[in-house]
Computed example of a mutant assay.
Amino acid sequence: MTLRPALLLAAVAAALSACSGAIEAPYEPGVCFVVEMSEDGKTPTFNKLAEGQPQIEQCAARLEEMRLRFLRLGGTRRDVIGAYQGQYIFLDQEGVKLGKTLTGTRFMALARTGDGRLAVPGAISRDETGRPVGVAAPPPAPGQ
């Protein structure tokens, strides 16, 4: 009878150790990295993009800036992966998502507006189909 709980405990420990094989993002305070995947798609390389970034949103902005510059130079890569203080940043056509691992759950941080800019998801007005609508403030009244 005591053998069964020991086997169960060993099986649980083996399962948990298999989960810890995920590649962790580097944790350097204020440093933003670009993640380049190897040809086999399993081994990432972390290249330093910017230092002195106080928040993850600023790192996402640096990644978006890099992505746009490469597109202007004729690049075709539209999705970018970055890392900031132990978290992964995923930029794609929908916006910016954050995750603890490369393959795990991702959470929306910034969404794209109708003209392609990034904004906080709750700040974007959408029509009945869910498509983003660009909203401009009304012009000031004369004499004000």
Rank of each mutant, 00 (worst) to 15 (best):
G86C: 05
A123M: 09
Q87K: 13
Q87H: 14
V34E: 13
D79F: 00
A141G: 09
V135F: 02
L71I: 05
L110E: 14
V96A: 01
D79N: 09
G82F: 05
I89D: 01
Y27E: 12
L110C: 01
L16Q: 09
I89Q: 03
I56Y: 02
T103K: 10
P132Y: 04
S17H: 08
Y84Q: 04
P29F: 06
F90H: 13
G114P: 05
G95A: 06
A119M: 07
E128H: 10
V120W: 08
G52P: 03
E64H: 12
R117T: 14
P139T: 12
V31T: 06
L68H: 11
P142Y: 06
G134D: 15
A10D: 02
G122D: 15
A83G: 08
F33K: 01
L3I: 14
L118M: 02
M1D: 15
F33R: 02
A50L: 07
G75V: 02
R77N: 02
A60D: 04
P121K: 04
A14S: 11
L9P: 04
R67C: 08
G116S: 01
G104H: 06
Q55K: 15
Q58H: 03
G114A: 14
A15V: 10
F107Q: 06
G21K: 14
A18R: 14
Q93H: 06
T113Q: 08
T45D: 11
T43F: 06
E51P: 03
R117Y: 09
Q58C: 00
R62L: 02
G99E: 04
E36R: 07
R106E: 13
A111Q: 12
M66H: 11
F70S: 11
G86M: 03
A10I: 05
V12M: 05
E39V: 01
